[in-house]
Write a protein that binds this DNA or RNA. Sequence first.
DNA 1: CTGAAAGCGCTAACAC
DNA 2: GTGTTAGCGCTTTCAG
Lengths: 318, 318
Amino acid sequence: MATVSRVLREPDRVTPAKRAKVGEAIAHFNYVPNAVAQQLRRPRSRTILVIIPEISNLFFAEALKNIENVAHDLGYRVLIGETQRCQERLDQYIDLVTSRTADGLILFGSLMPSVLRASMDAGAPLPFPVVLAEASVRWPNCPRVKIDNVLSGEMAVRHLVKTGRRRIAMISGPQRYTVSQDRLKGYRMVLAEAAMEQRQDWVVEGDFSMASGYAAMGRLLDLAELPDAVFCAGDEMAIGAQTAIRERGLRMPDDIALIGFDDMRFAAYASPPLTTIRQPAGELGKAAVGLIKALFDGDSIRESTIILPHELIIRRST
Amino acid sequence: MATVSRVLREPDRVTPAKRAKVGEAIAHFNYVPNAVAQQLRRPRSRTILVIIPEISNLFFAEALKNIENVAHDLGYRVLIGETQRCQERLDQYIDLVTSRTADGLILFGSLMPSVLRASMDAGAPLPFPVVLAEASVRWPNCPRVKIDNVLSGEMAVRHLVKTGRRRIAMISGPQRYTVSQDRLKGYRMVLAEAAMEQRQDWVVEGDFSMASGYAAMGRLLDLAELPDAVFCAGDEMAIGAQTAIRERGLRMPDDIALIGFDDMRFAAYASPPLTTIRQPAGELGKAAVGLIKALFDGDSIRESTIILPHELIIRRST
DNA sequence: CTGAAAGCGCTAACAC
DNA sequence: GTGTTAGCGCTTTCAG
């Protein structure tokens, strides 16, 4: 048995003759090592758990794809958990790492595992490697990768101002998420800076879905005082908004300019093609894997924050 | 140790007094059973491996979400593997089940694991539970869930004929996939049946991406003999095609009618909203879990095929 | 009802 | 270089 193990793991430490013999036997019996038993003996499972709020969100999908790729190249397996923004499901997935099925965690979304919250409240160090991705909160001793949502919100609105818009509205994300708050903050910042009118009813909250963008835009268009530009905190909401605008017979960008957020792949095919702020989803995924790997290897990079660059993509909706 | 195990697993077989005491200890030491060790002793890992070609495809994302949900309710964990249509990565993921990290496999896509191909060639029974989802091929002794792509292709084109179109083109999927072949077959069927013109250059092959739909439509529009309707084998290609049509200043459905396939969530927000054939992605996922569960439980449902109903969703592009 | 003891299949340390 | 041995942390007999 031990020799078989060696042949599979460190073939050089076995005589070629024996190696061949064992190899034959392996082939003959169709032997595949039981990974569970291996894991029990080995210190690490070489598995990364990635937790995302929802799998059908294209931003996460893109990040995930890159995580998979990089992890795979590094010899790690990736386990994906979808929480659907439900605390209970999140905590169940966390069991995978406390029970050592996974070595560490890349966590997307704003939900926080109970175990981590508890250990933090107790002032204890994090019980296992975690990296926060696109994190809305800051967590002591925990590296994160994100973009600067305030700055990118500013960039979006500044572009609107620069192209001559004066009555700028916003369809924001749910305000319980810091990401959403930050983008809104960026919006307000620029408006204040440009000494432009800030109306309460020009900010409508959506939930990042197309339906919510459509509804929010509907409310904006019902206003007596119509905005001449709208900053949408997400591309899907922007696409919903476009539909609403088209239905009212208004033209973009002439009547209303629209800027989105994310640059998901549908943005370029919208009607008109959507100007947007690109979030580097892929880069974010890659960076997250780099961070977790460093944690695994014991590098003391805790507490670091990587801010990835956002980018203005000008298309024809502005 | 044994008692702790019992308290966690079959509390009723332990005196309440002892149970409480053990419970306290568990809480105090923050004890979490090592899942790897548990799995070593238990016959099954209660994990389902789901393999998909690409995670960012909305059809898979939707199916996956339902798989996750149902599996979760049944007490199964879901491991997701993305092959990116690469045989090597597929085979690596299959190791998860041969090495008993997963109990069985739900397989999307047309790639076939080498192990399975080998065992089939040898006339042997499948070495572990597999269900084929939206399978392009048939596999002996292996249950599958799918829709009827020929019939749904027919339904799409028949709708075009019924609404008075006479020069119907098609943007097909890659012909190396049976799914794509089937939809094309449906198209040809109806055309033949209606004794309508079938032109070689009215069928252009895409790869399901928006970019390919855009390019394919461009080629169609360059033709001397313009079609008055196009059946796209996927919604994303249809959205790409819409962009091309708009850019040429043509109107939908007046100049050209367009019908897509899938009814992914963007279809309703396209411009104009896309008429399409709905594939029940969610149902498909649920059914797949049901099938694999039955396989786990030893029900002899092998060789069954579940055909899920497709549906014509009429919107404004036709 | 509970503790002791025997493995699950493997790897690593240890002899030979 | 290779076989033997001792666990990894649990579950499951088996006694008591």
